[in-house]
Each structure stands twice: as C-alpha cells, then as structure tokens.
C-alpha cells in the first residue's frame, strides 16, 4: 500500500536505528504482504543470516514472558540489543486480541536497546503469527541480536516455532498436569533447550526426573534441562549461556540446518500464497458451483478438487 519511495525512506530509517520507523515497518509486514516483500528487499535482509533467532514456547502460565524478560536483562549485561516478538491469540469470533505479554516485561522499559512488539496470531496455527518471520527479519535488519519470539501458550504438538527459530526453548513448570502431558506430547521434540521454571515449587525435582526419564526412552541426544525461578532471575544466566552456546563454532551445524529449513519453508509458503491469490481470482463462481455440488451430494470433495487441480473445473 506504501509507495516505493516511502518504503525506501522507511527502510533507511530502520537501518539507522529509528525506533518509530521500526514500529511502522513492523506494521507494514503485519498487514501488507506486498509491501512487506518490497520493504524486506529494501532492508537488504538475507532472511535471518545474522541475528540469533530464539523461540520461547510452552503451555500457558509457565512463565514464558517472565523468562524472556529475565533473559533480555541477562543479555543486556553483555551489551546485546534484544528484539522481542510476543505473540498472543486472536479471537476467532471477534477478530480482536488481548496482548498481555508486556505486563511481565515492565523492568525492560526505558531501555532503547530492547524493543518489544506484541503480535496477534490472526488465525495462524502453531502459536505464531503469519508475519512472525518477516517481523524477525525487520528486527534483525535494525540491528537487534538476538531476536526472541515468544509464542502463544501452546498445547501438545505445536511445531511451528521449531521451524521458525534457530534455537527453541521449551518452558515447562511443575504441576498443572504438565508432567503426564509432557511424557506423551509431541511438544518435547521441539526443544533444543528445556527449562523447568518455577523450580522453587515442591514437586520440581520429581518433575525434572520425569522429564529426564521421558528423554531416556527416546533416540537422539537429550537437550539440556535447566531449572529456573525466572521471577527472581535464578538460573537464567545458565539458560542464556545454553542459548548462546548454540552459535559456538563447534555447535553451529544444527543452527545452519535450521536456517536452511526455515528458508525452504518460507519460500514455499510465499509461492503458495502468491499462487493461491492469482489462481483463485476469477474462479469464485466455479468454486461456488462446485461447493453446491458437494453439499447436494452430486460429487465428493476429492473429485471437485481433482477437477480444479487438472484444470477441468466447470460451471454446473
């Protein structure tokens, strides 16, 4: 929606570190796919080759936001500039969203080297927002490193974050039924680093042992399991070190693989989006006709789809 000249000026301001321009650029990538493509080109980001992209995920209420805030404080001590994307769910009914992750991040206020942006999931699955990758590109181009994305509180098998991040931190807490859930859930597989937060709770040690046992039943290496009390900053330094260690030369291969996978997935998604957009334009009436046919019991969904896929769709 923005003109080329405006986008170029915006991109330049973002690279200069203008916080207002950065905020506007994030609005563009969230709302305008065509503008996002032009903006990212103008920013000259190479799809995430620079900043360490860290995903923080886990069930609701385990302390993800508190941990992210504490990690940001730990990185600030090392002089890092931290970009944070905090995703919360959009209501499928009203289209509205209540984005409350900043509540736990108040201690970071007033520091120009920390930039926090809340994103509504807007119907995307996997605890992310469709714009999360692009938004991370923008923060990367603005010089923030690491860029931390906190997902919606997720359930059992949400793997989008593992595909979007270089390093995925899974946060769990003792109790809340997590113990049994974690044993059988697909969630454990996404973790590069596992954090048991609220470790001052009585059943914490038992929970950690149960997690260790769950991993011992699996093939492959067990990720580090670290205990924190994020609200007091305890154990957070160790988590920060474990995250940073993923970029050490001897460990970098895993991150490289992740980046390739991310680039592959993003290209495919963008091709699918563009093709769907142009392909369906002008086919609305035929689609309606096919849908009527399906509801009237004249043909199956698979047969209707096959007609479209083979270019044999017709008005009924």
């Amino acid at each position: 929606m923005l003109e080329a000249g405006t986008l170029k000026a915006l991109a330049e301001a973002v690279r200069r570190g203008d916080a207002r321009a950065l905020a506007r650029a994030l609005t563009v990538v969230e709302n305008d796919p065509a503008g996002a493509a032009d903006l990212l080109r103008a920013l000259g980001t190479a799809g995430g080759a620079r900043a360490h992209r860290v995903g923080v995920t886990g069930p609701p209420g385990v302390g993800k936001s508190t941990l992210v805030a504490a990690l940001a404080a730990a990185w600030r001590l090392l002089g890092k500039r931290i970009g944070i994307l905090a995703v919360d769910p959009t209501s499928p009914f009203s289209g509205g969203a209540l984005l409350g992750d900043r509540i736990r991040m108040g201690a970071l206020a007033g520091d120009a080297n920390v930039f926090i942006r809340s994103l509504a999931s807007r119907g995307a699955y996997g605890g992310l927002s469709a714009a999360a990758d692009d938004a991370a590109d923008v923060l990367d181009a603005a010089g923030f490193d690491p860029v931390v994305t906190e997902t919606v509180g997720v359930g059992q098998a949400e793997i989008e974050i593992a595909r979007a991040a270089d390093t995925t931190v899974l946060v769990l807490a003792p109790g809340q039924g997590d113990e049994i859930q974690a044993m059988k859930a697909g969630l454990l597989e996404v973790a590069d680093i596992l954090v048991v937060n609220q470790a001052d709770r009585r059943d914490a040690d038992r929970f950690v042992h149960a997690l260790e046992a769950a991993f011992d039943l699996r093939a492959g290496p067990r990720p580090p399991i670290l205990e924190t009390i994020a609200s007091k900053g305890e154990g957070v330094g160790e988590v920060r070190e474990a995250i940073d260690a993923r970029l050490r030369p001897d460990a970098q291969e895993a991150v490289g693989t992740r980046r390739l996978e991310r680039a592959r997935r993003r290209i495919r998604a963008e091709v699918d989006r563009r093709r769907a957009e142009t392909w369906w334009a002008g086919r609305g009436d035929v689609l309606d006709a096919a849908a009527l046919g399906v509801t009237a019991g004249e043909l199956t969904v698979a047969d209707a789809a096959a007609e479209f896929a083979e270019g044999k769709e017709r008005d009924r």
Partner: peptide, 24 residues
C-alpha cells in the same frame, strides 16, 4: 475486534508512550 495491548499496573507516562510507539 480491537488488538489490545495491556501493560498492567503503575505505568509512568514515559513507559506508556514508549510502549505505544513500539506497538504502533
């Protein structure tokens, strides 16, 4: 239908404006 960013208690004017600008 709005996207509401809620920042919690005891916000100073500086914190409010900083958050508003970052969140656009």
């Amino acid at each position: 239908g709005f996207e509401v960013i809620y920042t919690g208690l005891r916000q100073t004017p500086e914190m409010i404006v900083e958050a508003a600008l970052q969140e656009d």
